[in-house]
Design a protein around this nucleic acid. Sequence first.
DNA 1: TTAAACGATGTGGTGCACCACAAGGTCAAT
DNA 2: ATTGACCTTGTGGTGCACCACATCGTTTAA
Lengths: 119, 119
Amino acid sequence: MYKVSEFSKMTGLSKETLRYYAEIKLLEPVYIDPRNKYRYYDNGSYLVARLLVYLRKFNFTIQEMLEVVNDESFENLEMLIREKRENLVQEVERIQSIIEEMDEFFELGIGDEEDDPMA
Amino acid sequence: MYKVSEFSKMTGLSKETLRYYAEIKLLEPVYIDPRNKYRYYDNGSYLVARLLVYLRKFNFTIQEMLEVVNDESFENLEMLIREKRENLVQEVERIQSIIEEMDEFFELGIGDEEDDPMA
DNA sequence: TTAAACGATGTGGTGCACCACAAGGTCAAT
DNA sequence: ATTGACCTTGTGGTGCACCACATCGTTTAA
C-alpha cells in the first residue's frame, strides 16, 4: 500500500488534489489507519488515478469523472467519453463561429471609423 | 447623462458588472456627483460599453479588454482582435487533438478489458 | 534520544468574472 | 410629509478545481 506522498508522486496528482478527491469521493483511500488517520492507497487506487489523469486530459469535469467512477464496472466508460467528445465537437463549432464573426468584422474594415462597425 | 440602472438596461451589463468594471477601470463613470456619489455615464460610455459587449462575445478576457480600452485611439483594435483570433484557432486545434486522442481510445477497443488501454 | 521528515486537520486563498444581500442615504412622485 | 424607488458602500458568495500555510501529532533514521 502507498502513503500519500508516494501515491502523489506515482500519479502526478498533488497531495491537496488527492485530499480533495477523497473528500468528494472521487478517489478515496482504501485504508485509513485509525491511530493516526494516515491514508493508504493500493494498486486498484492507482488504476483509478491513472484513469482520472487520462480523463482530465480529455477535459472531463469533476462531475463527469464522478459519473465514470461511480459506474462500478466502467461499462459506460465508452459512452461517457463519446458524450464528452460530442461536447468538444460542439465547443469547436462554437469557437469557429466566433472566428467567422471576427472575419466578418475584418471585412467591414475597421479603418473606416466613421462607420459604426457594431451597428 | 445616464444613471446606473438606465445604463445597465441600455447595455445589457448588470449594475454589479458596471460597478466591477468601474473598479478595475475598464469602464468608469464620466461623472460622480460628490453629494451622493451617484455615478453617471454618457454617450461615449455607451459606445465603449457596446464595444465591450462585443469583445465579450469574442471570448476576450478582462485583461484583453483593458488593453483595447487603454489604447485611446483604438488604433490597435484590429491587431488585438487578430491576436485573439489566433488564440481561438489554437484552442480549436487543442480541442481537436483531444478529439483525435479519444478516437484512438475507441480504436483500441474498450470492450477488451484485459488489455490496459492506458498503457 | 533527537531531530527532521511525514502526515493529518483546519482554514483561507487563487484565478476569473461576476452576483447578491444588508444597511443606510437620496431622489421623486403623490 | 410620506413612501417607494433608487443609489451607494461593504461584504461575502458563486462555480470550478485546486493550492498553500499554520499547527500539531506521528514516524523514521541516525
